[in-house]
Amino acid sequence: MTQFINMLLIGIGAGSIYALMAIAMVLVWRSTRVINFAQAGMALLSTYIGFELVQKTGNFWIALPLAMVLGALFSALVEILLIRTLIRHSTSGPVAGIVPIIATLGLLGFIRAMIGFIWGNQDVQIQPPLSKIGFKVGQETIALSPMNLLVLITVLAMVLILGFIFQKTNLGLSLRASAYSPEIAQLAGVRVGAIRTIGWSIAGAAGAAAGLLQTVNGTGTVSPDSLEFSLLLTFGFIAAVIGGLESLPGAVLGAVVLGLVLAFVQIYISGTLVFIVAFALLLLVLLIRPQGFIGTKAGRRA
């Protein structure tokens, strides 16, 4: 029984971080129809910036929001410098589909190399702000530490804030309108270019939070070649796709389902199988319900 509860806790904890990554991918996809394979690299950069800020200020609570703001700025910069150029140059030829994929892949390599130049290729360590020892319930220690609780609360708060922005504010309306149809939104007076940049910057902030929280929640160390960030990218992508790639609640749902499935595999079967199970889950969803958990038949436009 304890094992089962631990599985649920681990699954939801991991899923909540994938959710941030999935949200970032969905926001970028909705605003520019690009899957940002550099999302993990951008999250990695924000994590290093977070590391510097923790060093300077000595306080994780100041470093996290600051890193998110800087991550958002960097993401906006990428949109303005790279993605706009890409869209302006875009050809309708046979390679039109691969250009954004390759460009973001190139960006990923570029960011990694830059991080290597600045911080070197060794691990750097970020102290977790809270204890990572699980709470005690009766005799048993459960897989929920103050740190995990913090991650859950942060993610929940972000999802709620994003949900509020999207549903209740004019900005959210513009974001949704330009995702639905850029032309119509433009005619209705939405400044689609600016809205795209905002979409990217929110994604950058979410990615920064995902990177920092994943790091302090996990090993506490990062290096330019961290496997964790490849995983964050893959699992974030898988969560976004099984959630439908168009909807934010879908991304969160997809991430939590993925987290739970992987936790189940990890605890009851074998830890080394998680990647292949994640891949199988992705294939299964794409074959049976390509529009994702949440999404209409016409939802998949690619």
Binding site: I35, I98, I101, S230, F237, T272, F275, I276, A302
Partner: peptide
């Protein structure tokens, strides 16, 4: 679209394990 790229990416990470 990008689904193929992402799916093959997931395979490349998953298979070595």
């Amino acid at each position: 679209g990008p689904y193929l790229a992402g799916t093959t990416l997931a395979l490349a990470i998953g298979l070595p394990s």
